[in-house]
């Protein structure tokens, strides 16, 4: 039995009694407690806690720094996005302006050339009308002489004598005037 074995190892120096109340052990315990606790306190306050604390602080600083950098990047992204959208709107409105101007200009040019064409056509039309009128006049003149010849010939065949040219001319005039 382990407890019994350990029991036999007791040097039996402290006499009997309840171990925590054996006064002759107090001096040794206090002596070593002072040494152990003083050693622990010095090591903890001078080395351990500063080191652990600096690690924790460094991590906190790193995290805070990273978060700040991330926020900065985020806001600059948003800025870039906003300026992109702004320039997009500007470009769109400028494109519309250019389109409108071009259309107006082209319309104006088309209108101008259409008017020029109209004038040319009018001139040609007038010339053509003149030619037609001249031709018609000429044709009418020819018709009159042909009609006079035909009238003379027809009358000569009917009555055997050729009518007087003046009678034919007056008869033609009265018909043509109707």
């Amino acid at each position: 039995m382990a407890a019994e074995k350990a029991h036999t190892e007791v040097p039996g120096g402290h006499g009997g009694g309840f171990p925590p109340f054996q006064k002759d052990t107090f001096a040794s315990q206090l002596f070593w407690l002072v040494i152990a606790f003083a050693l622990l306190y010095v090591l903890i306050s001078k080395v351990a806690l500063p080191r652990v604390g600096s690690i924790i602080d460094a991590r906190r600083a790193r995290i805070d720094g990273d978060l700040a950098a991330a926020n900065q990047l985020k806001s600059s992204t948003e800025e870039a996005m906003a300026s992109y959208e702004k320039s997009l709107v500007e470009a769109r409105s400028r494109a519309q302006t250019i389109g409108n101007e071009t259309r107006d200009r082209l319309n104006a040019e088309a209108e101008k050339s259409r008017k020029a064409l109209d004038e040319q056509l009018n001139v040609k039309l007038a010339e053509a009308e003149k030619t037609i009128a001249a031709t018609k006049t000429a044709a009418m003149t020819n018709v009159r002489s042909i009609a006079a010849d035909a009238t003379g010939a027809i009358v000569a065949r009917l009555i055997g004598t050729a009518p007087a040219e003046s009678a034919v001319a007056s008869a033609l005039d009265s018909v043509l005037k109707r």
Partner: peptide, 25 residues
């Protein structure tokens, strides 16, 4: 003043604490 079993365990406690805090960091 004796080196006792109690003293050994006090020193071991100190050693373990210091190793835990310093050895791992």
């Amino acid at each position: 003043i004796h080196l006792t079993n109690s003293a050994v365990y006090m020193l071991v406690s100190v050693a373990i604490t210091v190793i835990l805090l310093l050895g791992t960091t």
